[in-house]
Each structure stands twice: as structure tokens, then as C-alpha cells.
């Protein structure tokens, strides 16, 4: 039955801090072996969600199951099956990379080899360097190494690549793909949408404590938000048109204008779609809170952005 149960199951999860509500009924499942990205602006509730699932915070309401257990009551055997990469930490770091990994490997029943993990995060040259002498990005790689040393079935990554240079990020993506090939289930929060697009099978977007979209990356957002945009110059004026059949639009333009100047067809990027989702939700909240209709020019929703030069490629 382990194979059928989802790795993570969250139902109407809520979390309040005093009068402030951080999560208002979030529901999603993560299948075994799946890589799932949690996207959202700062303060939207990503870290609150992930920390509830890691067992660090107690939920205020709703249900949560992680690897078949209630994370609030996860014992040592349960902890041995998960790996956690927290957001940045500032430990004093008077041990070397190898000493730290060797120490942590000892906590797990079936750890990975320390040298393999050091190589996987690309710190072979720094294996005998004390943590405090590492750069921020290198320390982050140690965090990732500590998260995977115990050979977790489920890996939590909370903004794992903050402070990485582009090369380190590519390297990290390779590592995540290799973990995925081994069957590791991964829950990832990130600010980098290209990272979510590269790594995740599905993503959920959280805004103001509410799940506003969920699904495979290439299906997020409304159809309208995904509609390609054709841009061209006509008599020196920039024009654009949203069209689900951009080829036909272009053919029509060519028939009318000959070779159109400045022609481009743009598919809204994940970032456009994401900003549209979050913007629409927050605008909706704000208008409901103030009871005054917002002027259309202030809205950044995709539906409104078909009015000229709002969408950036």
C-alpha cells in the first residue's frame, strides 16, 4: 500500500499566528517519485506549509500526512526517511565539510557515502575546509548535502539555490534529476521559475495563504493567459495581438503588409503566467477589502494585459 499512498497529502490545511492567518485551507497531494514545486511571493505561506510538513510547526486546522504519518507526531524512524534543506542558516561552522557530513551520516540507518555526496554537490576541493571559510553558495551546497546524506525517500528543499552562481545552479539541477531518477520524492519552494520549470512535474502557486493554481507547469494559468502574442510594427507604431492561431495572424499580416517590420511571436513565459496568477488574486483580495473597484490600469492580470504593451516577453 506504500506504493499507492501519496508521499504527501494535505487537506484544507490552515495556520494562524494569533489573529494573522498564514494559510487558509490549502489542499494538495504529492505522488511518490514526483517533484513538486511550491511557488509564491514572499510571505505567501510557502515556508509555513513546508515547515508544517517537516514537523517544525503545528497546523491550526486541516489534515496533513507525510509518508503515512502525521508530521506533528513524526518519530525518529519517520525522520530517518525524510531529508530537509532549510532556508539559510548561520551555524558557527568550526567543522570541515567532511567532518560535518560524516557526523550526520551516522544519524541515518542507510546513509549515502560521504565522498559521493561531496562529489555530487561539487565540493571535492573544499572537503577539508571548515564551513565558516566557505562562501555563501558553498555553504548552501553543504546544506543540500546534509539534506540528502540520509538517502531520504522524501526531500524538502526550501529555496535551495539562493546564492548559487549559474554554474552551481545547473550542477544542482543535475543532482536533483539524479535523485529523482532514484525515485526520491521532492518538494521544492523556489523564487526561480525557470528552476521550477526545469525540475518539477507539477507546481502549485500560493498567494496570501491560498492555493491559486496547481498542475503540470505547462498547464498553469488560464488558457487566455497562455495565448501567444504576435507583435509587429505598422507605420512605425508597435502593435500586438493575442491569438491562439498566431500563424494565421502572421499570414494575414504578410498578405496585407508584405514582410512586417519587427515581427515576433511571444508565448507568455512561466513568469508572466505566474505574475498574472498572483497579481489577479492579490488585486481581487485588495478590491474586496476596500469595496472600491480598482481602476483597470492598475490591474496586471493577463486578461487586462492584452491592452497594449503590458506583457513583457
Amino acid at each position: 500500500m506504500n506504493a499507492i499512498d501519496p508521499a504527501v497529502s494535505v487537506d484544507k490545511l490552515t495556520k494562524s499566528y494569533g489573529s494573522f492567518t498564514a494559510l487558509t485551507g490549502v489542499t494538495f497531494d504529492i505522488e511518490r517519485g514526483e517533484t513538486f514545486a511550491l511557488l509564491g511571493p514572499n510571505g505567501a505561506g510557502k515556508s509555513t506549509t513546508i515547515e508544517i510538513l517537516e514537523g517544525y510547526r503545528d497546523r491550526s486546522g486541516g489534515e496533513a500526512r507525510v509518508l503515512g504519518s502525521d508530521p506533528q507526531r513524526g518519530g525518529l524512524a519517520w525522520k530517518a526517511r525524510i531529508g530537509i534543506v532549510l532556508q539559510s542558516s548561520g551555524e558557527s561552522g568550526n567543522v570541515t565539510v567532511r567532518e560535518q557530513l560524516t557526523q550526520f551520516a551516522g544519524y541515518y540507518p542507510n546513509p549515502r557515502s560521504v565522498d559521493e555526496v561531496i562529489a555530487a554537490v561539487g565540493l571535492e576541493d573544499k572537503a577539508n575546509t571548515r564551513l565558516k571559510s566557505l562562501s555563501g553558495g558553498q555553504r548552501r551546497r553543504v546544506d543540500v548535502a546534509l539534506g540528502v546524506i540520509g538517502r531520504p525517500e522524501l526531500l524538502f528543499l526550501d529555496e535551495p539555490t539562493t546564492g548559487f552562481d549559474p554554474e552551481a545552479r545547473r550542477h544542482f539541477w543535475e543532482l536533483i534529476r539524479s535523485l529523482k531518477r532514484e525515485g526520491t520524492t521532492i518538494l521544492l519552494t523556489t523564487h526561480y521559475l525557470d528552476e521550477a520549470a526545469q525540475l518539477s512535474d507539477r507546481a502549485a502557486v500560493i498567494a496570501a495563504g491560498t492555493l491559486v493554481a496547481i498542475g503540470p507547469i505547462d498547464t498553469l494559468g488560464s488558457d487566455e493567459a497562455r495565448t501567444p502574442i504576435v507583435r509587429w510594427l505598422e507605420n512605425g507604431i508597435a502593435r500586438e495581438q493575442r491569438a491562439s492561431d498566431p500563424g494565421r495572424v502572421v499570414a494575414e499580416l504578410v498578405g496585407r503588409l508584405g514582410e512586417p517590420a519587427g515581427l515576433e511571436i511571444v508565448r507568455p513565459s512561466l513568469e508572466d503566467i505566474y505574475l498574472g496568477l498572483v497579481g489577479a488574486y492579490e488585486a481581487d483580495l485588495a478590491s474586496r477589502a476596500s469595496h472600491t473597484p480598482r481602476p483597470p490600469s492598475a490591474s496586471s492580470t493577463p486578461s487586462a494585459s492584452s491592452t497594449k504593451d503590458q506583457v513583457s516577453a
Binding site: E54, G55, Y56, L76, A77, K79, A80, I82, I84, L86, S89, G90, E91, S92, F104, Y107, Y108, L146, G150
Partner: peptide, 18 residues
Amino acid sequence: AMERSDGTLKRLGGTPLP
């Protein structure tokens, strides 16, 4: 107290260390 505030304890709390 330092380990509590710098994240050492939080990290250990996420591992199966008793």
C-alpha cells in the same frame, strides 16, 4: 543558546538524532 538561534538545533531536530 547560540545553537538555538543560529539554526544548529533546528537542523538537528530535523534529523533522527535522539
